[in-house]
Amino acid sequence: MRVNEALPGCDERVVTIYSNSEERNRIEDDNEDFVCPAFDALFKVHDMVVVEEFDDDDDYNDNDEYSEGQTVVTVRMLVPSDQIGYLIGKGGPIIQTLRNDTNAQIRVRNDNLPMCALALSHDELLQIIGDPSAVREALYQVAFLLYNNPSRF
């Protein structure tokens, strides 16, 4: 994992997660599914951010679960422009399937890139919004598509 330096006047940072694709980690203690370490790190970072953001929120309960339909989270992810087509599909069928399967709002934003991303001109901003479990599932499916269609950059 690499966390870029903070830019003056910007409260966001770019976090880059990468790993050797031949390695595998179990994604949860009781689960038989294995993923590359980058997937594992992505979900751990996501879960930590969600927990920290909503730790004092009334929608968060003592079992580390969220009351569905009450809490909304947003994930913003920079995706290399040569991979964004794999997420959209010709005419949009892939992104629409992702939306339908996960019940999350998923959109590609070409405008309003955060200041910390402006230097990364070959990236597009993917935004996922919804309840925590829908966003996590959408994040998993997006990461899987990107993993199977690596960037040429």
Rank of each mutant, 00 (worst) to 15 (best):
S21Y: 12
E28L: 08
E32Q: 10
S21K: 13
N20G: 02
N20H: 12
V15P: 03
E28S: 11
R26W: 05
E32T: 10
I27F: 10
R26F: 10
R26M: 09
N31F: 09
C10T: 08
E28N: 08
D33S: 15
D11G: 13
D30W: 13
R26Y: 11
T16L: 06
V15M: 06
D30S: 14
R13N: 02
Y18M: 11
E28M: 08
P37Y: 12
V15E: 04
F39K: 00
V35Y: 05
S21M: 07
P37N: 06
N25F: 15
D11L: 12
Y18Q: 11
V15R: 03
D11S: 14
V35T: 03
S19K: 03
E12Q: 09
F34Y: 13
I17L: 06
R24D: 07
V14H: 00
Y18K: 13
E23L: 13
V14P: 00
F39M: 01
N31D: 14
E23H: 11
R26P: 05
V35F: 09
N25D: 15
D33K: 15
V15N: 01
V14G: 00
V14Q: 00
P37L: 10
D29V: 09
E22T: 07
R13W: 00
S19E: 03
R13F: 02
F34M: 07
F39T: 02
E22G: 10
N20I: 06
T16A: 05
D33Q: 15
E32A: 12
V14Y: 00
T16K: 07
C36L: 01
I27Y: 09
I17F: 04
N25G: 04
D30H: 14
P37F: 11
R26C: 03
F39P: 00
F39D: 03
D33V: 15
V14I: 11
I17R: 00
V35Q: 02
E32G: 11
N25Y: 14
I27E: 08
I27A: 03
F39Q: 01
Y18T: 10
A38N: 01
E32H: 07
E23I: 02
D30E: 14
E12I: 01
V35C: 06
S21D: 13
E23N: 10
D33L: 15
V14S: 02
E32Y: 09
C10Y: 08
D33T: 13
C10D: 15
E12P: 04
N25C: 14
N31W: 08
E23D: 14
I27Q: 04
D33A: 15
D11W: 13
N31R: 09
N25E: 15
C10G: 06
R24W: 04
D30I: 13
F34D: 04
F39A: 01
C10F: 10
E28Q: 11
E32R: 07
R13Y: 00
S19P: 05
S19I: 00
P37A: 05
S21P: 13
D33I: 14
I17V: 12
D29L: 08
T16M: 03
